Computed example of a mutant assay.
Amino acid sequence: MSVKQHKEEAPKKVNCKVITVSDTRSKETDKSGSLIIKVLQDASHSIQDYQIVTDDYGAIYEAIKEGCLDKEIDVVLLNGGTGVAKRDVTIEVVQSLVEKQLPGFGEIFRMLSYLEDIGSAAILSRSIAGVAHDTAIFSMPGSSGAVKLAMEKIIIPEISHVVREIRKDLR
């Protein structure tokens, strides 16, 4: 079956949880989380939950796990906590949870970042995607530019396809 056929069979709407990882943002100042929500809604997807958690391993872990165990949520999308500072542990948390990693997400994200935006600083762009508990997880940097790039160029074009692939073995 072709990719085109897969995408035609994919759900038109998926249910999402958005998590912003930040020690400083509130729902009023969270531009990146708001952007994720807007892009998802513009693509006819549903936001089931939205949360801001601190740069704390346990808090991030619990927020992701809660989303993955909620049968109403198909996709968990995170932004923030992906840098190289000691407190940036989002990638490590996601790595500890995913059963299947989608390395192409990070590879394509860094390539696009390099070509379209930040040049060689793309080596600092840590991002990850995978599957845990039959739920897709996408984690991207917290800058609104990075979120816009990841959402528009990678996630929105593939989010329904990824969910279709996860669900096909659950029937």
Rank of each mutant, 00 (worst) to 15 (best):
K168S: 08
M140N: 01
E28Y: 07
N15S: 06
L97M: 11
K86V: 07
F138C: 07
S44H: 03
I64C: 03
E158M: 08
K7N: 05
D49Q: 15
K65L: 10
I19M: 08
A85W: 11
L35G: 06
G81S: 10
F105Q: 14
E99T: 04
E66T: 05
Y114F: 13
L149N: 11
D70K: 11
L112C: 12
D70V: 12
E152C: 11
A43P: 04
A150T: 03
S143I: 03
V98Y: 12
K17D: 03
Q101T: 15
S22L: 01
A132P: 01
Y61Q: 13
D117C: 06
V94T: 11
L124P: 03
L69T: 13
Q48H: 05
P141M: 15
M151E: 10
V93T: 04
D23Q: 09
S160L: 06
P11G: 06
E62S: 08
I47M: 00
I154E: 12
D88T: 07
A121P: 06
K153V: 05
E66A: 05
Q48N: 08
P141F: 14
S160F: 00
Q41E: 15
S143G: 01
L115H: 08
S2V: 07
E116I: 03
V89R: 06
E28L: 07
K38Y: 07
P157F: 07
V21I: 12
M111L: 13
P103L: 15
V18N: 02
T90S: 02
A63M: 07
K148V: 02
V75C: 05
S2H: 13
Q5C: 05
E116S: 06
H133I: 02
K13R: 11
S32E: 04
A136M: 08
S46Y: 13
S120V: 09
G80E: 14
R171V: 04
A122Y: 09
N79C: 13
S125H: 13
L124R: 12
